[in-house]
Computed example of a mutant assay.
Amino acid sequence: MSISLIQQKPAKVKPIFKKTDVDRFSKTLALKVESYFKETGKSKKGGKVVTIKTIFLLSLFCISYGLLLSNWFNPWGTFFIGLLFGLTHALIVFNIAHDASHNALFKNHRLNRILSYTFNLVGSNSYLWNLSHNKTHHSFPNIADFDPDIHQQAPLIRMSPSEPYRWYNRYQHWYATLLYLIFSIFLVFVKGLKEFFPSLKSKRWLGIDRPPFREYVILFFTKLIYFTYSLLIPLMVLDVTWQQFILGYLGIHFFLSLFLISVLIPVHLVDESEFGTVDQNGHLPDTWTVHIFKNTIDFSRKSKLANFLFGGLNTHIVHHIFPNICHVHYIALSEIIKTTAEEFQIDYHEESMWGAIVSHYKLLKKMGSNKMSDHILNPKMN
């Protein structure tokens, strides 16, 4: 799996959404959400619930790491403790780092900024996440050349109609899962490092020539910390053979990768997604809000367990429209959004978690057909 260097020429201007919201849909949504918080007296941030959750997850991270290094268990027991430790990485990303980067966790912006560095703690990078996710993906989801999330799996996996078709893409719905197994390895070993160097065209995704020098220092310092505690120390301390260590390390990453992929991929890249098609002047036919509905899906929307584990990312429509609101409110807000969409006769895509995953594989199969090659390049075909 590698970062795609798109074969097409990048768009000259950023996509322009339709300005006039004829049905006043966006304004109505905003008013209803404001009314919800006024009537309930709740803060838009996380409050005590998120404070307890943050302390719990960071404690679980430390405790599971301590148990992993304790040598109290046989190799299989150590491996399962390692799985728990790997799981805490994803839980921290979903529940702490992600909301903190959106200033949605607490009212204190400085505290949010500090907690956003938990991205770095688990091998990612808060600076790059803010640029590629908050500023780029959130502004232009599923739009060719402006949303890195629909291109980073190419050329091995074709997620978007704007990607050039290659003969082996016809089999991608069969082999994609094997590539997904190394997703977390790709994130911590490849993605962040490549995007920091302009020679690999990070400018396309990040909108900058190169990151500031201090961000390079933070990147390499935190990567050193991550690789020290996750690789070097366990390798020196654990009472296992090096073969067992490598197999265990890969097994933990396989588990973590599938967990991450099962949550992150189906929310946009599903069969129902329409993707963004711009005309010759860079204009899109929909308002930004309607575009979100056409390219986002919710799964397990009412599940409190899903909300707890996934940090509300399963109720993804709420998150995109109101990213500065903490995920603890997403179940209630998703009901408001769904009923409002129905009032305005706007399709609200909702599935079970399994249904969303199945829909993703339907998209893979569809994008594996060369009949979809000109979907974006020739808008008249839409």
Rank of each mutant, 00 (worst) to 15 (best):
V122D: 03
D99W: 08
Y127W: 05
N120L: 07
N125P: 13
L105D: 00
A104R: 10
D99M: 09
R110Q: 12
V122N: 00
F119Y: 05
V122P: 02
N112V: 02
L115A: 02
I92E: 15
H89F: 04
I92H: 06
N95W: 11
L87D: 01
L121C: 01
I114H: 10
N108F: 03
L121N: 11
A104L: 11
L91V: 12
I114Y: 08
N112Y: 05
Y117S: 11
I96F: 10
I92W: 06
I92C: 10
L87H: 03
F94R: 11
K107P: 10
N108V: 06
F119C: 09
N125V: 13
A100Q: 10
S101H: 07
H102Y: 14
V122L: 12
N120G: 12
D99C: 10
N108Q: 09
R113M: 07
S124W: 10
A100M: 04
R113T: 07
L87Y: 02
H98S: 06
I96Q: 08
H89C: 11
A97S: 13
G123Y: 04
R110S: 05
V93Y: 12
I96W: 06
H89E: 09
L111W: 07
L115I: 12
T118Y: 05
F106S: 02
L91Q: 11
L115K: 06
N103E: 08
S101G: 05
L115F: 03
F106G: 00
A100V: 15
T118I: 00
Y127E: 03
A100C: 13
N112G: 05
L91I: 05
K107V: 14
A90T: 09
N95R: 05
Y127I: 00
L121I: 06
N125W: 08
Y117W: 11
Y117V: 03
R113Y: 11
F119G: 07
Y127D: 03
H102K: 15
V93K: 13
T118L: 12
A104T: 01
A104C: 07
S101A: 08
L128V: 13
K107L: 14
N112R: 15
S101L: 01
H89A: 15
R110C: 05
S126H: 04
A97R: 10
S126M: 04
T88D: 01
V93Q: 08
N112L: 14
A100W: 15
F106M: 00
S126E: 11
N108C: 05
L128Y: 03
L128M: 14
N125G: 09
T88Y: 07
L91H: 11
A104F: 01
I96K: 02
N103M: 08
N103F: 13
S126A: 14
S116V: 01
L111P: 02
F106E: 00
S101Q: 11
R110T: 12
H89G: 04
S124F: 15
S126V: 08
T88L: 02
F106H: 01
A100S: 15
F106P: 01
H102N: 06
H98M: 12
A90E: 08
D99R: 07
N95Y: 03
A104G: 03
V122S: 13
L111N: 01
A97K: 15
A104K: 01
L87V: 00
A90L: 01
L111M: 02
